[in-house]
Amino acid sequence: MSAAWQFYIATVLIYLAVDVTACLGLNLQYGYTGILNFAYIAFVAIGGYTYAVLTLGPQPRGSFQRYFFGASLPFPLPILAGAAAGGLLSAVLGAIALRRLRSDYQAMVFLVVSLVATSVVTNAVGLFNGAAGLSVIPKPLGSALNLSLLDYQWFYVGLTAAFAGLTYLVVHRITGSPLGRSLRAVRDAEHAAAALGKNVAGLRMTSFIVGGVIAGLSGALLVGSITAWSPSAWLYQETFVFFTALIVGGTANNAGAILGAILVPVVFLEAVRFLPQFGPPGLTEALQWVAIGTISLIFLWFWPRGVLPERRRVITLPGLPATARPDGSVAESPAAGTAP
């Protein structure tokens, strides 16, 4: 297999790990807690920018790009800082938007946040170099390791896979624990959850912030690989790709989130690369979006619970029957307001 092919495969694997990480975070927020976070990509973005700014070093005089602050921190600090930035932004936004708003207003506010974030970053050029964005961003351990281009790529595959695995562990532990149950209770019937002593607002914030940290992490890892980041890479529609991934793969199911990440951002979007270029520039991209939108609609109509739906958690104790349900899945509830 030629080196070029290997490089390509390694790159796809990197994207896969990053997308899996991102989808797991959104699944925690939306799938398990019912938060319609339509600004998810903004948290990915801030993780990316934070990583960039903390590796580019202080802005030198006459530099072709302008940005705010700037430092050259050693690995893994910039990546961790990116994750922390995602968490911090979630804390701020969560405090404003999560508390008292009805779900649809919340969704609307998040969407608006995403749109405005793009607008602000594009226009405040001193922040992150505006529309041109940041580039020539150093890779993690890029100079320290002194590997060939291909070898470094495989190293990065391992790095992102490790972080994806860590993310999976965190999300798995949360969702399988009593905390996960409390989150699902808030999602299913928040007034009943409150009547049972659950601090609904606090639980939402917890889920939102953890999801934000994961989003920031995925952003930092992505930028470390592609070494450039600009508003065109994180428009509001990108959040929609993740939601489509969850819809296809299955929400409130970590395996479903992983499957969705494989099928949508990776398989579907990468597959397009192999089609012959046709029409004017921008046409394929536009049609891709049409396809993503259509896939969402189709799945929401025919298979709303996705390929791997939320699983029923059977608890076996002596004396308790585990009633046979062939697929082990959770039945559809006509009254459920949120689980699709």
């Binding site: 969704a107 969407l111 819809i247 049409v290 993503i292 969402s296 006509p334």
Partner: peptide
């Protein structure tokens, strides 16, 4: 069909996305 709030929002966003990009595809940038 009893679609939840989330489903309806995704549906409208999808429609918006499809509409905007179809216009883009037909008329270009």
């Amino acid at each position: 069909r009893g679609a939840s709030l989330f489903v309806m929002i995704i549906v409208t966003i999808s429609v918006g996305l499809i509409t905007q990009n179809l216009l883009q595809a037909i008329w270009g940038s």
